[in-house]
Design a binder for these strands. Structure first.
Lengths: 214, 214
DNA sequence: GTTAACTTACTATCAAGTAAGTAAGTAACG
DNA sequence: CGTTACTTACTTACTTGATAGTAAGTTAAC
């Protein structure tokens, strides 16, 4: 009946404000999930912050899980720390970029907290963010490893097999320092500590010393 | 009336089995909070695991928050990683101990996960475990810093001002590697990566090199 | 016989998700 | 150009289900 006509009917574009509204919701969700965790934060709280009901949010995102996933991928636009989509500095510039990021992050406690909380929470059973963080770390480790290879090639050093260990370690130390810094900002200098550790690890790859623990 | 007599009445000691039961509950709580988080885990699940109702658990611990706090302090008996109460190896032995711990932890995913999840969750607003983890990191950083000082003294090196940064970094890298390892055990060698990073950081304190990033 | 160690049963609360309705926008068509 | 046809962007109201905590009762140890 109307079927055939309906099929070829125009697709009435979503309103332009809708995109802005979605961004607002995502921003609010980062804040709430960051400050309360995913399990602890509620749609109601997010809705309150954007002046809506929680049903309105479900209208946009379908479910709380889906909202989280979109929050995580949305971050690229917000989080300076991310390398994946940006033009990636190669070689030694990447390590400098990571250090700079740590210094910048020291002024962005909200976003840092969101990532700390959500990444750790993602290791729990059936967490909707788990796959996201698995891929994220895999990608980031790959980027760092490639930077190491480039640097080794530049210096004519044979790329040692410590590169994988070092790549994971650099990301790890940045994350771990964030936890300590969030718990007690006065006790840990996020920027300087990250700088120190990254330098130590890079140095250890480029000019391995005999183990001091032996 | 009976008040005065009751006051001096024997305090009918808790049954010997009670202690064992409490331990069972704490063990189950570690597992549940570890696998679901504190906000995500429920008293019901914990109760199921020890063959009780959730009210029985509240009888022993009073509240969910209190249970968490007891879980966290109970850990000393279970978690090999902890240094606070054990006789602490000093100087270089401490770093060796940390490395050994990392290798051991690679076979204790359950407990590792509990600490990763709970420590990160503790940075959220009004989390009952926050103070615990603040103190814990403060103590651990102190232990590591003291080990650095001892080692520096042994070698006749002036203790550099990088010790604080290094102490936080060593704990950070261990924690951060745990997250990556839990997300993808095949991709990260928890023991070897921890060893590598700790050696790099210790080495960097003992014999500082000019910054490779400069 | 008192108290610890529970259970059962209940309460209060709060969560995500659904259903149905409404107002306003947008396109198609005559 | 304006009516019609339909969609988006919500709201209100509800359902369903779970959760921490409480109160009162029961059993058995000491």
């Amino acid at each position: 009946m109307t079927e055939s006509t309906a099929a070829q009917r125009r697709q009435p574009r979503s309103r332009p404000e809708t995109l802005a509204k979605r961004r607002d919701i995502l921003d609010a969700a980062v804040e709430i999930f960051g400050s309360k965790g995913f399990a602890g934060g509620t749609l109601q709280e997010i809705a309150d912050q954007v002046g809506m009901t929680h049903a309105g949010i479900l209208h946009h995102f379908g479910s709380k899980d889906q909202l989280l996933l979109e929050v995580l991928s949305h971050r690229d636009e917000t989080d300076v720390a991310d390398l994946e989509e940006q033009h990636i500095p190669g070689g030694m510039a990447l390590f400098r970029h990571l250090v700079r990021t740590a210094f910048v992050n020291a002024h962005r406690a909200g976003i840092v907290q969101a990532y700390v909380v959500l990444s750790a929470e993602s290791v729990t059973d059936d967490h909707p963010g788990r796959v996201f963080f698995q891929k994220r770390y895999e990608t980031l480790r790959g980027e760092v490893a490639r930077a190491f290879e480039v640097v080794c090639a530049e210096r004519g050093v044979a790329a040692p097999d410590t590169i994988e260990l070092a790549s994971a370690s650099i990301l790890a130390v940045m994350d771990g320092l964030q936890v300590q810094w969030l718990l007690d900002p006065a006790a840990v200098d996020l920027g300087r500590a990250s700088e120190f550790a990254i330098e130590a690890i890079v140095d250890s790859v480029l000019s391995p010393s005999p183990s001091p623990l032996a």
